[in-house]
């Protein structure tokens, strides 16, 4: 690691004030230190935010939950309110990483995970995300794990989080605070597509700090499923993952949500696809139609065409499971 200075403020405003162009906030550190050891990131200053009062999980006025950004992934997944009201989130978190990493990683940090693209991690290779303008090695290289949706000629990386896929399906919101004050963003708008600025994973402005994630009242607790397809049974990133959430009225879908992981630079949702579920009988044909719509425009690279078919099958499976009732 490149040497850096270290500060540990106790108040949010102090943390934000400390932040400069060479700074990074550190919470769990599980991805940041990983990248610093590879010299992918070389911040001059780390601002340790673990002293900030961001560890509460509280009820919001409207009846949802506000989750402090420093709540660990494990604590969140096993929180009684999450397990009972938002099992989709719990399942997604527990499908990711390992118990050790989930004990360390923070809620806010999970949103800021960087891609697992091989080239991003290897400083000996060109990568636009790491070094803008150097080129995208993945596009004509090893791209079995890369994006099929929303990629650009500059970047084909995928966002690696499981938690964010569930948060996207749940219409979660992100609370951030910076020198210009506080903002509240929809999670689906938080991450961005690579376009010609793949170095930007999300819409945060320099120095902004994630303070909380907010969950709306509706948790789809009785009909949800998180399906993660990967190369080994555990401790591997998703090739494709699906968060499926349904509000059922008998066997009729009143409202449906589908979010995909492992296929794009951000959790992938499409309202038009979900509308194909609403008011329909929960059966494979309806699920397949929604899947086809969601995957419309998918563009495979040399090694990842299978992801399109796989995603389609996974969507149908996840929706079928969700329709059958949440497995507790």
């Amino acid at each position: 690691m490149t040497p850096f200075s270290y500060q540990r403020p106790e108040r949010i405003d102090q943390a934000i004030a400390l932040h400069g162009p060479q700074s990074r906030y550190i919470a769990g550190g599980t991805n940041l230190l990983d990248l610093m050891k590879e010299n992918v990131l070389q911040p001059g200053q780390l601002i340790d935010i673990n002293g900030l009062p961001l560890r509460e999980i509280e009820r919001t006025a409207e009846g949802g939950l506000r989750i402090g950004a420093l709540v660990s992934n494990a604590d969140l997944a096993w929180h009684p309110q999450i397990e009972q009201r938002y099992p989709l989130l719990s399942k997604a978190i527990l499908a990711g990483a390992s118990p050790q990493l989930r004990n360390m990683a923070s809620t806010g940090g999970n949103l800021l995970q960087r891609t697992r693209c091989y080239y991003f991690y290897d400083t000996a290779t060109p990568c636009n995300k790491r070094e803008p303008g150097s080129g995208c090695s993945a596009r004509d290289g090893r791209n079995r794990i890369h994006a099929i949706l929303g990629a650009s000629e500059h970047c084909a990386a995928v966002h690696p989080s499981d938690m964010c896929v569930a948060l996207a399906a749940l219409d979660a919101r992100v609370h951030v605070e910076g020198t210009h004050g506080k903002r509240r963003l929809e999670l689906v708008d938080f991450h961005r597509l690579p376009g010609d600025q793949p170095q930007q994973d999300n819409v945060l402005i320099e120095g902004e700090l994630i303070t909380a994630i907010e969950l709306p009242v509706e948790g789809f607790a009785s009909h949800c499923a998180y399906l993660k397809v990967r190369d080994r049974a555990s401790y591997a990133f998703a090739l494709v993952s699906v968060a499926a959430a349904l509000e059922m009225d008998g066997d009729i879908i009143r409202r449906g949500r589908i979010a995909l992981g492992g296929v794009a630079h951000k959790p992938w949702r499409l309202e038009e696809a979900e509308e194909l579920l609403n008011g329909k009988r929960a059966e494979p044909e309806c699920f397949a139609a929604a899947a086809d719509r969601l995957l419309q425009g998918a563009q495979p690279l040399a090694d990842n065409a299978f992801k399109i078919d796989l995603a389609r099958r996974a969507i149908v499976r996840a929706l079928t499971e969700a329709a059958g009732g949440t497995v507790r």
Binding site: Y118, D122, T125, S137, A236
Partner: peptide
């Protein structure tokens, strides 16, 4: 996995070498 253009192994870690 090797990228033959670079002549270099790319999944040289225990997260991607399964």
């Amino acid at each position: 996995l090797i990228d033959h253009r670079l002549g270099r192994y790319m999944n040289h870690n225990l997260a991607e070498y399964h």
